[in-house]
């Protein structure tokens, strides 16, 4: 259902939601924006940047979290995890879409992560479409889009003085019961804005046949070439909305088993206890990162594991651009024998 939300009414609505939910929205933190819980007298920061610096996956999979506590001499106890009802407001479609992909990792039939699941179930997600798409983003290339609905309970379209609200689920409808319905003109206007936004984004690289190229060129010198200037830090993966790797560590001195973010770009990620490392250099690690997103995800869920948010492009300390890397990959020969 399409509804109309006046912009000057937004803060009132957010405050009303705060009675029922803990409301997270992008706010300034130092020089960037971040999803923080709204406090009295909050100021939203939508104009500063398209995306928050850290993707909202951190609200579901924190950088570090304690799983259980133990003592040296006797047993363990679980860390109580209560998730109050939460509402994330102003999430961009790329980040919301990414969350649906992470669901396939954390909520599998046989193995479900209770923490992730509880947080997902307790959270309502209201998206804000990108009427002015960002320059580093490439969502339309990878099958998402500036107004993609995946993972959202409602999506807003900025029409100047007003937001057009499309409710997508029951949870979403419940949020906007007080609003008036949009006129046909307004709905038309919104869909024009949406189409124009998507059309303004150039196709960053060809995805057709990309998987085969990556698979066939597993042993190609291409990987050495594209990874040569890679520093081997975790910026691209930690800021990626679809990266989910974690490491479980026993903090023996504190008596806690914790789960921390980890990344395939680190040497220690694949280091084995024997000292052998199957991915000994940045070449193999870069190959893993790219292939995971553009090949292995396709095997598993038949979707590209990237939603084109562009964070890795924007914040790579050495200016590596995944779009350029993949354009280059597409130029690779097709019939290469595995070495």
């Amino acid at each position: 259902m399409n509804l109309i939300l006046k912009k000057d009414h937004l803060n009132h609505l957010l405050n009303a939601w705060r009675q029922e939910y803990e409301v997270y929205a992008p706010q300034s933190l130092q020089n960037f924006t971040h999803f923080l819980p709204l406090q009295d007298g909050f100021e939203l920061a939508f104009d500063k940047a398209h995306n928050t610096r850290i993707p909202p996956k951190a609200l579901f999979l924190p950088t570090s979290e304690a799983l259980l506590k133990f003592t040296r001499f006797g047993g363990y106890e679980e860390v109580p995890s209560e998730t109050a009802p939460r509402l994330i407001f102003g999430i961009r479609p790329c980040d919301a879409h990414a969350m649906t992909m992470l669901d396939t990792v954390f909520e599998q039939e046989r193995y479900t992560d209770p923490l992730w699941k509880a947080r997902r179930e307790a959270t309502v997600v209201v998206g804000l479409g990108c009427h002015e798409p960002c320059q580093t983003g490439f969502c339309t290339t990878v099958g998402s889009g500036p107004f993609n609905h995946a993972g959202l309970d409602a999506i807003l379209t900025d029409l100047g003085e007003i937001f057009l609200v499309e409710t997508l689920t029951e949870k979403g409808e419940h949020l906007f019961t007080q609003l008036e319905t949009a006129s046909e003109d307004q709905s038309m206007h919104a869909s024009e804005v949406q189409q124009a936004a998507a059309a303004s984004m150039p196709i960053a690289f060809e995805t057709e046949g990309l998987k085969q190229k990556l698979d066939q060129n597993f042993a190609s010198p291409y990987w050495e070439e594209v990874s040569r200037s890679c520093l081997g830090c975790g910026v691209c993966t930690f800021l990626c909305p679809t990266c989910f790797c974690f490491d479980i560590v026993d903090e023996a001195q504190r008596g806690e088993r914790v789960r921390n973010w980890d990344t395939c770009m680190f040497r220690t990620y694949s280091l084995e206890a024997s000292g052998h490392n199957p991915r000994p250099s940045r070449v193999e690690r870069t190959r893993q990162r790219l292939s995971h997103k553009y090949s292995y995800w396709l095997d598993q869920i038949n979707q590209i594991g990237c939603t084109g948010c562009g964070r890795c492009v924007r914040y790579c300390p050495v200016g590596l651009d995944i779009r350029a890397m993949l354009r280059k990959a597409h130029q690779l020969p097709s019939e290469v024998l595995h070495a």
Binding site: T63, L231, C233, G234, V235, F238, W261, P317
Partner: peptide, 11 residues
């Protein structure tokens, strides 16, 4: 604010 990505170390 640190997220322990170690970009400072690698740079």
């Amino acid at each position: 604010r640190c997220i322990r990505c170690y970009a400072c170390r690698e740079a």
